[in-house]
Nucleic acid binder design. Structure first.
Lengths: 124, 124, 124, 124
DNA sequence: GTGGTCTAGACCACC
DNA sequence: GTGGTCTAGACCACA
């Protein structure tokens, strides 16, 4: 896994798990790798992974069975999607719109470009 | 001014100045408020403002006349626009596209929504 | 059975057995369910139940006949009551008093509320 | 500070801060000691203190000014009181009532004892 | 085996 | 100076 420089690793780990949930790579009630496993897999200290899990637990995306491990919460996909969508709509989208205005970008060009990208990625 | 939680304050100050330049609120060779003025206006430590100005100076958006103050560089608007556009296209846009895919957002709906917003804002 | 988050499961199992003893649901020299039975009943690893039984045995609340099962000790009710009362008076009560002070709760209201609850529960 | 053996230190630190708020020893918008200060004061690793502060921040009892320190949130006292009272009423009180029934404790005796304690402590 | 807590110490960005 | 992140490693209780 390649970590972005300026974002805390533990949040990047959380994000990657959320994305796996959105992509149905992790299903609800499925066990995820243990803290130590994931730590060695990612070349990261177990404490860092734990912080990630703590965060995800605090927003009810995962739960733990004591002595067994962490599991994807039932309803996690819907919850993650809601959180992400909410943030996109209320925070990112206004920022995007502001930039489009500020930079005098043509929305039609942009829209076409995005559609093309989506098409490409879906067919790949 | 409301500062975002996760972005350094000095960068947010820089951004707001750049936005003013793009909006033609600050014109080239116009003097901007002094470090102390801006510090008290924003409720921020002058050191933080200073850092902001240092940054803007380093990317040639402002220049200083010693003992007089800081001024918008000639050509600043073009330069800022280039920097912002570059970042938008190469960093933000790919992230946006990824999210659109992940969240299964309809690009046509989105495009319409943005157009409507742009229309509204321009008429305001 | 709903387990509390922060208390070891094996102690919660022990507690529930002690409560049954205090309620005369388990009588002295009565056999209690086997480790495996209880494990499946509670959805818990047999090791955890075992640990519970070990603990109860160590404080002489149950005894085992090898090859037969675990049984409530003679005099268990008296012993459990003494242990619980001691803990209530010396540990819990001071904590309760501290909270009442801190939260500025009216002791008369509280006392009435408790009396009412006791009345209700006894009549049910 | 004497730490209880079986409760995480970081939660005990949080509790002690909440109690100071309830007792008006910390007032709203007052700065609390820095992580490092409190760490040395309590003979505890700064990381442990930070964990405490993270928790308190997550429940909006404190807030931070970047580069300056942590401060008691406006409205913290009311919020803490609500949290504590809620837990007392919904979790602790039912447990107390259960024990009183189970141990056949006389509610009147208990009430008198508590009143006496409250009287003593208030006059001390 | 699992997670949870804690320490020591380092390094960083920021104010 | 402040908080924030991360590592390394230890120890513990629990399942």
């Amino acid at each position: 896994m390649n970590f972005n420089e300026h974002k805390p690793i533990y949040l990047q780990i959380s994000d990657s798990i959320c994305e796996k949930i959105l992509n149905n790579e992790y299903l609800e009630d499925e066990r995820i790798p243990s803290i130590r496993e994931l730590g060695t897999m990612l070349g990261v200290n177990p404490n860092t992974v734990m912080r990630s899990f703590e965060y995800l637990k605090s927003i009810d995306v995962i739960y733990d069975k004591r002595g067994v491990g962490f599991f994807i919460s039932p309803d996690a996909r819907r919850a993650v999607k809601a959180i992400y969508k909410d943030e996109f709509m209320n925070t990112e989208l206004p920022a995007i719109i502001k930039k489009i205005k500020l930079l005098e970008i043509d929305i039609n060009d942009l829209s076409k470009k995005i559609s093309r990208e989506l098409g490409m990625k879906e067919s790949s």
